[in-house]
Each structure stands twice: as structure tokens, then as C-alpha cells.
């Protein structure tokens, strides 16, 4: 429950970041044509914001059923095999998310050790961005686990509903 609330808040944050990106880029166009001096930072900030939006928002996306999946087979089998198939599918997803987390963690550590900056016209310590990716991956894993638990707990009720 708490996880769901937190994930939804992240969903709003992510959406707002996308909106902010639009504002910043539009300002950049305006600055180029009307102020005669494009901002050096706008492009970079926008790029960082979209990365952050993707990773802040992905757990909300999963929670709200946004990460599309093929349902034709699983919707046709009986509850128990259905749950097993779903669990297996989520297991694959979990393995990928875990590998992503591991990889992001390693880069976050390296970025910190070597004081890397992010690519772009605005030097920003990369560890912040890799850190956001680590955070997003953790949230994705937690949400995946929550979904699996949900499938086993609520599966029967949903079947009855149908």
C-alpha cells in the first residue's frame, strides 16, 4: 500500500519532469531567436530530466499496467497455470531488472570514484544520474515483487469476478 502511494507520487514527479523539459526546450528556442544567445545548459538539462523521468516513472508504469504484455495465452488458461506462467514471466523481468540494477550500481560507484561528469555542455557529476538509475531499478524490482505477491494473493478473487 505504502509502496503504491510512493510509486504514484513518483509517477507525478516523472510527469512533471517531462512537462518541465518542454518548458526548458521552448525557452531555448526563444532565447536563440529573440535573445540572440541560446542557453548552453538547456539541452543538457533536458536530457538529464528525461533520463530521470524514465527511471522515476517506470515503477508507476508497471504498477498501472503500462508495461504492455501479451495476454492471449495467459488469459485462456486456468487460474493455477495462469499464476505460474505469470510468475515465470515476472521472474524473467526480475532477472533483467536485477542485472540492470547491478550494472547501474557498478557505474555509479565508478562515476563517484573517478569523479566523472555527464556528457553534455553542463558538467554534472554522473554519479547523480547513475544514482537515479539505481533508485529507479530498485523501485522497479520492488514493484515487480509486489505484483507477483498480488497475483498469488488476489488471483482467486479476480477469477471469481470474471
Amino acid at each position: 500500500m505504502l509502496l503504491k502511494k510512493f510509486t504514484t507520487i513518483l509517477g507525478y514527479v516523472s510527469g512533471f519532469m517531462i512537462f518541465l523539459t518542454g518548458v526548458i526546450m521552448l525557452y531555448d528556442v526563444f532565447a536563440r531567436y529573440f535573445l540572440g544567445s541560446p542557453s548552453v545548459w538547456a539541452q543538457s538539462i533536458s536530457q538529464y530530466l528525461i533520463l530521470a523521468a524514465a527511471f522515476f516513472g517506470t515503477s508507476y508504469c508497471l504498477q498501472s499496467g503500462g508495461h504492455v504484455h501479451v495476454e492471449i495465452l495467459v488469459d485462456r488458461v486456468r487460474p493455477l497455470p495462469r499464476r505460474i506462467l505469470f510468475t515465470l514471466g515476472y521472474l524473467f523481468a526480475l532477472i533483467f531488472a536485477a542485472a540492470l540494477l547491478k550494472s547501474c550500481w557498478e557505474y555509479a560507484v565508478m562515476a563517484y570514484q573517478f569523479a566523472w561528469d555527464a556528457q553534455g555542455n553542463l558538467p554534472l557529476p554522473s554519479v547523480i544520474l547513475y544514482g537515479i538509475m539505481v533508485f529507479g531499478s530498485v523501485m522497479l524490482i520492488l514493484t515487480l515483487l509486489a505484483r507477483v505477491v498480488e497475483i498469488w494473493r488476489k488471483g482467486e478473487e479476480k477469477e471469481a469476478e470474471k
Partner: peptide, 26 residues
């Protein structure tokens, strides 16, 4: 090569071209 997972994602997410997808969705 699994360390690529982070880099592939990072590079694509911060690409200037990727930017327009969420904006057009908005």
C-alpha cells in the same frame, strides 16, 4: 558485456532524439 545494460540505457535515455517521445505524448 552485461555492464553494457547500464550504458545502453543511459545513452538512449539521454539522447536528444529520445527527448521528443515523452514530449509528444504529453
Amino acid at each position: 558485456l552485461l555492464s553494457q545494460l547500464c550504458l545502453i540505457t543511459y545513452t538512449q535515455a539521454t539522447s536528444v532524439t529520445t527527448l521528443m517521445i515523452p514530449l509528444f505524448i504529453l
